[in-house]
């Protein structure tokens, strides 16, 4: 399945990178061209997510789970790919559900930040995929200088996991609170 995975990943990469440019452009501009591009955002993000999920699923079939989950590079590739999909799913969801309101006030910068993070993760995921098939880039060197050697599995200790769970609960709590505020107003 490796050749199919390699072919398929081109689609989400292209779509999400294009979406990133659109989001950044729309963040910086309220002009008619930016708004025109923004109208293509939901289709772009939808196709990106769909092709991303397909590429991810096919990728999981390249090696048996026993194999990919035993390799540091394999684990990292799966982890960053999962997070990439989650990021872009959130970006799509909010844009789809909230329409042009996402470009109001602080929200547009949050949207730009999410897209940048999603794009960065996409790049790291692709880099790790390259490493898995023996094609190396300097992205891994940059990550090492930032504190992560990609030849070691990315994982956090239990204490951090607990904090992440608490943060997740608080974020959901903020969402519930905001929903009630909206309902009351």
């Amino acid at each position: 399945m490796a050749p199919y995975h390699v072919v398929l990943v081109h689609f989400p990469i292209a779509l999400w990178m294009t979406a990133t440019l659109v989001i950044l452009f729309r963040t910086l501009s309220d002009g008619p061209t930016a708004k025109l591009f923004d109208r293509a955002l939901v289709p772009l993000l939808s196709l990106g997510l769909l092709s991303g999920i397909i590429a991810f699923s096919v990728g999981l079939m390249v090696w048996p789970w026993e194999t990919i989950s035993a390799s540091a590079l394999g684990r990292n590739h799966v982890l960053t790919a999962s997070w990439t999909i989650a990021y872009w799913a959130v970006i799509l969801w909010v844009r789809q559900a909230r329409g042009e309101s996402v470009w109001d006030g602080l929200s547009r910068w949050v949207k730009a930040g999410l897209a940048s993070l999603g794009c960065g993760l996409l790049g790291i995921t692709g880099t790790l995929g390259g490493h898995l098939v023996g094609i190396y880039t300097d992205v891994s060197t940059a990550l090492r200088q930032l504190g992560w050697d990609v030849y070691t599995t990315f994982y956090v200790p239990d204490s951090t996991l607990i904090v992440l769970l608490l943060i997740s609960a608080l974020l959901v709590g903020i969402g519930v609170w905001a929903g009630r505020q909206k309902a009351a107003s």
């Binding site: 949050v110 996991l161 992440l164 997740s168 969402g175």
Partner: peptide
């Protein structure tokens, strides 16, 4: 944990954006 936190942020962000 990462997926959960991203989705949880999505929940918060979704609710905090003014409804169109």
């Amino acid at each position: 944990a990462g997926v959960l936190m991203i989705l949880a942020f999505g929940v918060a962000f979704h609710q905090l954006v003014k409804r169109q």
